[in-house]
Simulated assay, not measured.
Amino acid sequence: MTEVLREDTSARRKIIEAAREVFVDPGYAAATIKQLAAAAGVSVQSVYFVFGNKPSVLSALLDVAVAGDEEKTATLDRPWVAAALGAPHPLGQLRIQVHHGRLILERTADILLALRAAASADEDAARLWQINRTQRRTVQEHLMVGIVEKAPTVDLETAVNVALTLLSPETYTDLVVGAGWTGQKYEEWVVNTLAATLGLDRTVKSRK
């Protein structure tokens, strides 16, 4: 039994790793289970046995990419969220949450853009895209409540909407991939732009 579980875990990991490549190019809608199996080095039957269908593979890929691991811990229960909310100063909280937001985008931006592209033509992709958008808003609302508690003049709705725009896969990709910014430059820009928009007037020193 232990050996079977180990094999299933290994196959799961291989399929998820392959899904990142296959779902980005040729894209989720065009990708087939056969292509996914070939990229993962497993049988088609293994893909169906471990996941059941293509949407389940995509959902698992998103979960692992967002988390950065395969732990079944929700984003809001992650230690970095507690650290952000526990920061005594709003700018300190902002730095922590933007840093981790950037790390998440490094792992997910290409997947999310592929998902968004597929959403217009694929019902399952559209559903997962909407779920992800809702999850991102929920996380930002939870975090920004903490900012407002530390800085009551901050408008919560503005904070959430601006954060979602600056920390979107589209903005990240335009600046880091398209314009060639480093991840650190992008992170500092997000912190400083949010701080200025929300009236938190201290800025982050740029790092060379």
Score class of each variant (00 low, 15 high):
residue 101 G to N: 12
residue 125 A to S: 05
residue 101 G to S: 14
residue 148 V to K: 13
residue 192 N to K: 01
residue 182 T to H: 04
residue 182 T to I: 04
residue 110 D to S: 11
residue 113 L to R: 13
residue 118 A to M: 03
residue 197 T to V: 10
residue 166 L to M: 08
residue 160 V to Y: 00
residue 124 D to V: 04
residue 146 G to W: 02
residue 194 L to V: 00
residue 112 L to I: 05
residue 175 L to E: 03
residue 139 V to E: 12
residue 190 V to L: 07
residue 191 V to Q: 08
residue 111 I to D: 04
residue 168 S to G: 07
residue 165 T to M: 10
residue 187 E to N: 05
residue 109 A to K: 06
residue 196 A to P: 01
residue 180 G to V: 08
residue 203 T to D: 08
residue 115 L to E: 03
residue 147 I to A: 09
residue 188 E to K: 06
residue 140 Q to K: 11
residue 193 T to Q: 05
residue 108 T to R: 05
residue 199 G to E: 07
residue 155 D to E: 14
residue 132 N to T: 08
residue 96 I to K: 14
residue 200 L to C: 07
residue 188 E to M: 06
residue 160 V to P: 02
residue 152 P to G: 10
residue 151 A to L: 10
residue 178 G to R: 01
residue 139 V to K: 01
residue 109 A to V: 09
residue 179 A to D: 14
residue 97 Q to N: 14
residue 129 W to H: 09
residue 135 Q to E: 11
residue 117 A to S: 07
residue 191 V to A: 07
residue 182 T to Y: 00
residue 138 T to V: 06
residue 122 D to A: 06
residue 120 S to R: 12
residue 176 V to L: 10
residue 195 A to D: 02
residue 103 L to C: 13
residue 199 G to M: 04
residue 144 M to Y: 07
residue 130 Q to L: 12
residue 175 L to D: 02
residue 130 Q to C: 08
residue 133 R to N: 05
residue 152 P to A: 10
residue 186 Y to R: 00
residue 197 T to Y: 00
residue 112 L to S: 03
residue 133 R to E: 12
residue 172 Y to K: 08
residue 189 W to D: 10
residue 126 A to G: 09
residue 187 E to L: 09
residue 137 R to V: 06
residue 163 A to S: 15
residue 130 Q to T: 14
residue 167 L to G: 08
residue 127 R to A: 14
residue 99 H to N: 13
residue 123 E to A: 14
residue 183 G to K: 10
residue 128 L to D: 03
residue 99 H to I: 08
residue 162 V to F: 09
residue 127 R to I: 11
residue 198 L to T: 01
residue 138 T to F: 04
residue 201 D to T: 13
residue 126 A to Y: 05
residue 144 M to R: 11
residue 140 Q to H: 11
residue 188 E to G: 05
residue 117 A to G: 00
residue 122 D to R: 06
residue 98 V to F: 02
residue 160 V to H: 02
residue 204 V to D: 01
